[in-house]
Design a protein around this nucleic acid. Structure first.
Length: 737
DNA sequence: CGAAAGGCTCTTTTT
DNA sequence: GAGCCTTTCG
């Protein structure tokens, strides 16, 4: 087939520019993925490049999988020979292969954010830094920043900018020692160590350089400095480097992503061909205009000329609800309505939010109304306690030095090894300058003989620890010849973990999760004992939440705005369009971060193909207490003519809001009726004991009345409906006595 | 040693 | 509201 057919001129240009550096600036919905896949297909089928010599870097595993699928359709079999994956996955493979040159044992394990946190706390404790005074997450973020800038502990020390950095550098140093001791790498290490490997071993680098004739990087605006350095290293020989990105969709600066990489690319490769993809195929004109109006308010940006041939479509709807529960309720019932009238299928609809915490209320509404949904993060599967526990056992068997896994499961199920004993173990190991597991080995190696090492344990504790390690040793021995699934089952059984689950809370469900993990392990079975285990552990370490998103089921998608990047849906609801939430309060004191919030909003809007709802709630419970909100400033930048207008004017702004409060929602056969806002003061002031009537809730007695801003919040005990809190000006109350 | 209860803090986004 | 940590009691 002709891989150039069905491409517009700009897309075709991007596909055909195969030699030398290329920068593709791709607006949302401009067929970016199409360009990348067709470019690879073009290289293979037209230019005769072997797929073995092409590297394509994606942002998530899911994106990689999709690209592989699409490529399979274009070039059939040869797609699987491609090097295709995230930076982290590709680096993990390189280090597994060649890490020895940096003294990295190929059995290394990958620590996720939670493991990282545990190890960091350990490090801080050891060097006597109070976690109350220096929050481990903040220290961890600083360490991550350092690694993203390729600063080893020694380099970081030399910065010496502030007292905090001084503290961080000490934590960093010890943390890194503990990682090495555990034969473990964290996410940032995967990238940093690969760059270091290439710096240290030019021969290894040149092997990769000559292998990869063509390199493509997607979502380039969200790469950080190490990632860009890696790209430069790999592309240094042949310079066939193609990066694709959109500065307006840069939303990961908190992960040290730096959209300045795009500018650097232009200066590092002054001969780079720049291709602009500006035609949007995804959204209606209204949605695209809405998105543009929001993003245009960013000062630090190059103006773009996005356009579309698509029809104008429906106006955007800006909706106000009273509480977050009603917000969720509105979303669910509106989706039901769209489905009822045949406007959309459930699978066409998505609900996007700024913070994961918002998903709970939304989810509850979907459950209550019995509408099928899929939650992209949830309690992420691989973060569940039981799943992590079993993985910890497997990791320990694979790499006995893994301190975090050891400490995690040494007493799970309970083996009578308490905190006191573990504290002594840590201290003892540290005094000997060895990892805790190594200390256990000493202890278990010569149990009751006279040449047993001096140790600080009671006879009982020593025996329990030795028994535990004997059990681990036994599993290790068996793992070398045992089939992966047999090993899995043995681990779960012989450690007593299965019985432990069965006897605890929610054992059934937890056991289901273990079986699901077992199902994942099945996929690695064919690789043979040790190989399979290594591959399984690497696989589970590098999955992301969106990876599991399944587009084939007809369910509503609940997703964070960050996760939504790269996806599209016919119908999009963005909820929590409020000051302090979107934009998030943490961005208020930093203009650059505020611009990123705006980009996040832009990303959300541009996911929509046909219908867009921007929803906010008048009240919201944050951190356990309910507060009044203000509509997001981003709403003010949307011109009125793009918004549907059955609502009411908000004084002093250009904003039109549609208020959807459950108690004055019209009967389902009537069209939406705009609510008449009641001017405060028309009602006599209510006080406790007054009898009132509400249009929906019926008769009730006022419990209390509290002034809020220039309104009053009335708490009413209704005869049939229980106690409700209402806002005086909106509630439509009549005084009856 | 381990379970349970109480008290504290802090909440963004994730490979 | 939740998750973490500490304290307390058995």
């Amino acid at each position: 087939m002709d891989v150039l057919a069905e491409l517009n001129p700009a897309q075709r240009e991007a596909v055909e520019a195969i030699s030398g550096p290329v920068l593709i600036l791709a607006g949302p919905g401009s067929g970016k993925t199409r360009v990348i896949t067709h470019r690879v297909a073009y290289l293979i089928t037209v230019c005769g490049v072997s797929p073995l010599r092409i590297m394509a870097v994606t942002f998530t595993n899911k994106a990689a999988r999709e690209m592989a699928e699409r490529l399979f359709n274009l070039v059939s079999g040869s797609a699987e020979q491609l090097t295709l994956g995230t930076f982290h996955a590709i680096c993990a493979r390189i280090l597994r292969q060649d890490g020895r040159a940096l003294s990295i044992d190929p059995r290394y394990v990958i620590y996720d954010a939670d493991d990282q946190q545990r190890l960091l706390k350990r490090a801080m404790q050891e060097i006597g830094i109070d976690p109350k005074q220096y929050a481990p997450p903040a220290v961890g973020a600083a360490i991550s920043w350092a690694k993203s800038h390729m600063l080893a502990p020694a380099d970081y020390v030399r910065r010496g900018r502030s007292y905090f950095e001084e503290i961080v550098s000490r934590c960093y140093e010890r943390y890194q020692q503990l990682l090495t001791e555990s034969n473990a790498l964290d996410f940032d290490d995967l990238l940093m160590k690969t760059v270091q490997l290439f710096q240290k071993s030019p021969d290894i680098l040149s092997r990769y350089q000559s292998r990869y004739l063509h390199i493509l990087v997607d979502e380039f605006q969200d790469t950080n400095l190490v990632q860009y350095e890696l790209v430069k290293q790999l592309a240094a020989g042949h310079r066939n480097i193609c990066v694709v990105g959109d500065p307006d969709q840069s939303i990961y600066s908190w992960r040290s992503a730096d959209l300045r990489n795009i500018l650097s690319f232009e200066s590092d490769y002054p001969d780079a061909k720049i291709v602009l993809l500006e035609q949007n195929y995804r959204s209606t004109k209204t949605i695209l205009d809405t998105a543009s109006s929001v993003i245009s308010a960013n000062a630090q940006r190059k103006p773009k000329n996005l356009w579309t041939d698509n029809e104008a479509g429906e106006l955007a709807r800006v909706v106000e609800t009273y509480t977050e529960q009603e917000e969720a309720q509105f979303v669910v019932s509106e989706i039901e309505r769209l489905v009822d009238v045949g406007e959309a299928r459930l699978g066409d609809c998505s609900v996007m939010y700024r913070t994961n915490a918002q998903s709970r209320v939304i989810e509850e509404a979907f459950i209550r109304y019995g509408v099928p949904y899929k939650l992209v993060a949830g309690t992420r599967f691989y973060e569940r306690r039981e799943v992590k526990d079993v993985i910890a056992y497997l990791r320990l068997v694979h790499n006995p030095q893994d301190t975090v896994s050891l400490m995690r499961i040494v007493n799970v199920p309970g083996r009578g090894i308490g905190q006191q004993t573990l504290a002594r173990l840590s201290e003892w190991a540290r005094s000997l300058g060895i990892a805790p597991s190594e200390a256990l080995r000493l202890l278990a190696g010569s149990p009751e003989s006279d040449n047993a090492p001096e140790h600080p344990f009671s006879p009982r504790a020593a025996r329990l620890l030795a028994d535990f390690w004997t059990m681990v040793g036994d599993l290790m021995a068996r793992s070398r010849e045992m089939d992966l699934i047999a090993l899995f089952d043995t681990v779960v059984e012989s450690t007593g973990y299965r019985d432990y689950l069965a006897s605890g809370e929610g054992g059934e469900e937890r056991w289901e999760n273990i079986l699901e993990l077992r199902g994942v392990a099945q996929e690695y079975r064919h690789l043979g004992p040790s190989e399979g285990l290594a591959a399984l552990l690497e696989g589970v370490a590098l999955v992301s939440d969106v990876d599991s998103l399944d587009e084939t089921t007809d369910r509503v998608t609940l997703i964070t705005l960050h996760q939504a990047k790269g996806l599209e849906f016919p119908v999009v609801f963005i909820v929590g369009m409020e000051e302090r939430l979107l934009p998030h309060i943490r961005s208020f004191d930093d203009p650059a971060q505020m611009e990123e919030e705006r980009r996040l909003c832009y990303v959300g809007i541009t996911r929509a193909k046909r219908r867009l709802y921007l929803v906010y709630s008048f009240r919201r419970t944050l951190m356990g207490s309910s507060t009044l909100t203000r509509p997001s400033r981003f709403l003010e930048d949307i011109p009125r003519h793009l918004i549907s207008t059955p609502g009411w004017w908000q004084e002093g702004t250009d904003r039109v809001t549609e208020a959807v409060y459950s108690w004055n929602r019209p009967p389902s056969d009537a069209p939406d009726r705009p609510r008449e806002p009641v001017v405060p003061g028309e009602l006599p002031h209510l006080k406790a004991g007054d009898h009132v009537r509400h249009t929906q809730f019926g008769e009730g007695v006022v419990v209390s009345c509290k002034e809020v801003r220039d309104d009053s919040e009335v708490t009413v005990a209704f005869v049939d409906q229980g106690v409700k809190r209402l806002l005086l000006s909106y509630a439509g109350l009549t005084k009856t006595s």
